[in-house]
Amino acid sequence: MTAPAIRVSALTFRYPDGTRALDDVSLEVAPGERVALLGANGAGKSTLLLSLNGLCDPGGRVEIGGTPVGSRNLPEIRRRVGLVFQNPDDQLFCPTLFDDVAFGPRNLGLGEEEVQKRVHEALHRVDLATLEEKPSFHLSYGQKKRAALATVLSMQPEVLALDEPTSALHPRARREMIALLRTLSCALVVATHDLEMARELCPRAVVMARGRIVATGETSVVLADTKAMDEAELL
């Protein structure tokens, strides 16, 4: 039987100031499945995404494709889990767009020819192929959002963890982003409070409130669960 793309068991995490960000969170995501992670600001969505990539070290267990996340296999985990931050300016820090998209593949130790191939593919996929020599800070916000996605697509991940991929996008850019995400074959975990996107993109939804999972299931059913949505402050 194939191992789930993500298996998270009994995750608990407190920030140094005592804020409980994750409280006994357990979740499984199948390979290629698209799951929306719904919750208000501070519900623990971003912390959960960080723990998938080994960027925070919660109590409990995280497995990616059957491999437990631990300090010894972080390079392998980071190859398999692409993490896209909410603010694209955090993700884009190289002198040119090409260098930003090449950053991950180069860290994987790939040869320059393969790096170039992957960068061109990723930029073509997000429709930014003509801008590769442009500095990232000269891109529009919508272009930056797509560029941030390209920086992890070039690593060909098995799991894509996206933090608010449609936030602050105008309607057409939002629609294009959703259409783009629908074309990806890897497992997607999308943290968002864009409920319409969750409905369009993800067959399954998980609702978080105060670090706990309060509802999970088919997206349309979860969105109709007024008690859970109210508890998550999404109504």
Partner: peptide
């Protein structure tokens, strides 16, 4: 704070303390 987040974004893409340019 921004620096912290940029650092996390670097780690998330496999950065291990060495900047690798084109060979």
């Amino acid at each position: 704070e921004r620096g912290e987040r940029v650092w996390q974004a670097m780690l998330a893409r496999g950065y291990r303390g060495k900047l690798i340019g084109p060979s």
